[in-house]
Design a protein around this nucleic acid. Structure first.
Lengths: 335, 335
DNA sequence: GTTAGCAATCAAACTAGAAGAGTGCTAAAA
DNA sequence: TTTTAGCACTCTTCTAGTTTGATTGCTAAC
């Protein structure tokens, strides 16, 4: 456990470093941070904090920077999560008031707003397919060999897919399919769409397998495919000094460009509220030099998507967490 | 007009520089490029080519690099556009054989393939909204206050949008709307959806403006909005030596992140075949350090989308143009 | 427990010199 | 007239050495 003065020193160093990206010296702390001790005293405290793993040095005669343990302590114990101005609240509220017809759009708007307010790169993704139930399916004939399938999920998502046939089909057939599919799939999880279902439908209905098969396949495909990732403010990160290192910049682009990494990053959160992963706390090797903060857009226990920020470990956690908490609260109010 | 030897020298320099990204010396050319002249002779030719603007020097004692005029001459007069291997042809063909239900997916697959074969960053976008005609509109009731509108365009695109109402609507109303809207909009350009139409429909139909208005608005919105941009292989560019300059890398990210720039870049082409824009030939200031090669996916004069590559001016034009020509030809065969 | 003072450390910025690559020009060879 | 050998000149890049300045850790005094 850290005593009061050590906490103050640690907090000052973390916040100073978040602001300036420069190692923090004992002198600076003694003069500018209302710590009424000489630089020598602070130096002693810093040496202690370093011994206990809260601080790092870049070299013997440099100032200190927070270690990951230091950031973690700061996030857990020291940070204020109401670091949000009246203007920001106003701006966020106005953005979230935009009328949308699909929930995905709301998640997108929230993600964009977060990126605008925090100046970090934001990613968002829809709910995981396997967590959803099918609410209703509608088939619409388009021409004689083309059909549109519209699927509503219990999360409120609307998925559409075009199905093409090798033979003509008519309104009557579409109607029967409508009935049969809904009968079997209403309120069922997505896994229900499988081979036995195909066999059953083929037995029950009188049309050829050339009609049933593409329908099953296409519906399955559209329901199982990962939600599209939405990226906002990739270029914002590049104004940060850590991105002056070409290696860091490359890694970053690589992360954003690798769908699997992003999906994974957005799907590892499970906490009720905000998830914070600092550097090595990230599961994926590629993310070890970054920090990730995520939260799930959730209403009545229903997962509606996840929004995440990725940035340097020297992230303004206070601002990010405050903004995310506020937006999360607002989103819950809207539904 | 360049004489034969000058052409050979220019071509050798361009190709060497495209391969190595290093200024090309007279010595190298004399030894490795089958030019049976001494370095001194080649030096004279190089001085001439420089005087005429085809070559640049980075400093007095450096080798030469192609100027934009040099690249342009190379592209117009010297380059081979059948620079594509048997394996590449096979790979491309197999990729393009993937069965797709929507044309947009085909454009995407083509874009991905181009990026894979050329190792450059590829962008694609659907057809411009204003160029399309409405083929058919279908409305589908979803619940009591929600409706799906499906619009087919003559380019074969399928657009869907959810419409929400403040009052209940029923199947009958949807049917009437189906009839009325199709009656007015079938085979019409998108601009037909305007205020007079709204007034007309309101007069003709018996339901409140609360029903007509959101339908018009939402259809208009979905039809007019720019097609989604699809980006492939952003990270590939970062392995190129020109992206070791942080400034170049930043500019590049900025371009990819600015929707307006990308849209513009993909929409300035009008040539029948492949468009090549080298450095300053690009209209937009931000693109002046890059080269852009685009082509329109077009069948029977119908615009189905545009695919473009963006990369350094030192781009492998021969490979890029060859691959694009081949893919363009293949795409035309598919429809 | 706190602080002043000072030697020690190390990055960063600057300087100077040497090496090397490549050109341009001149005069000789073909 | 065209081509080439030869050489001075230019300019970058690399290396090594030096200086400067920031900051620490430690000791001894307060």
């Amino acid at each position: 456990m850290l005593d009061d003065r050590k906490k103050k020193v640690l907090q000052a160093i973390v916040e100073e470093y978040i602001n300036t990206a420069e190692p923090v010296s004992s002198n600076l702390l003694a003069n500018n941070h209302g710590l009424n001790y000489s630089s020598a005293t602070i130096r002693n405290e810093m040496a202690d904090l370093e011994k206990n793993g809260y601080l790092d040095k870049t070299h013997t005669s440099s100032g200190r920077i927070p270690s990951e343990k230091g950031y973690r302590y700061y996030v857990d114990e020291l940070l204020k999560d109401d670091n949000i101005s009246r203007e920001e609240i106003k701006y966020i509220s106005s953005k979230l008031e935009t009328k949308v017809n699909e929930i995905e759009d709301l998640t997108k708007i929230a993600a964009t707003t977060i990126s605008e307010v925090t100046h970090y790169t934001t990613l968002s993704i829809g709910p995981k397919p396997e967590a959803q139930l099918i609410e209703e399916i509608k088939f619409v004939l388009l021409g004689s060999r083309m059909m549109l399938a519209v699927i509503l999920t219990d999360a409120g998502l609307v998925k559409e897919t075009i199905i093409k046939f090798d033979e003509d089909i008519n309104e009557k057939q579409v109607e029967t399919m409508n009935y049969m599919f809904n009968n079997k799939l209403k309120h069922q999880p997505i896994e229900t769409i499988n081979r036995p279902l195909e066999d059953y439908l083929y037995d029950e209905m009188t049309y050829s397998i050339n009609v049933i098969k593409p329908v099953i396949e296409q519906i399955k495909k559209v329901l199982e495919e990962d939600e599209k990732i939405y990226l906002e403010g990739a270029n914002k990160s590049f104004d940060l000094p850590e991105f002056n290192s070409l290696e860091v910049a490359k890694n970053f682009i690589n992360i954003l460009d690798t769908k699997e990494l992003v999906t994974d990053m957005l799907n590892t959160g499970f906490a009720e509220d905000i998830n914070v992963y600092i550097g090595e706390e990230n599961q994926k090797e590629e993310l070890k030099d970054f920090s990730v903060v995520t939260f799930k857009h959730k209403v009545n226990g229903k997962d509606l998507g996840t929004i995440g920020i990725i940035g340097p470990k020297r992230m303004d956690y206070s601002k990010v967490i405050s903004v995310m908490k506020y937006i999360n609260k607002k989103l819950k109010e809207i539904e």
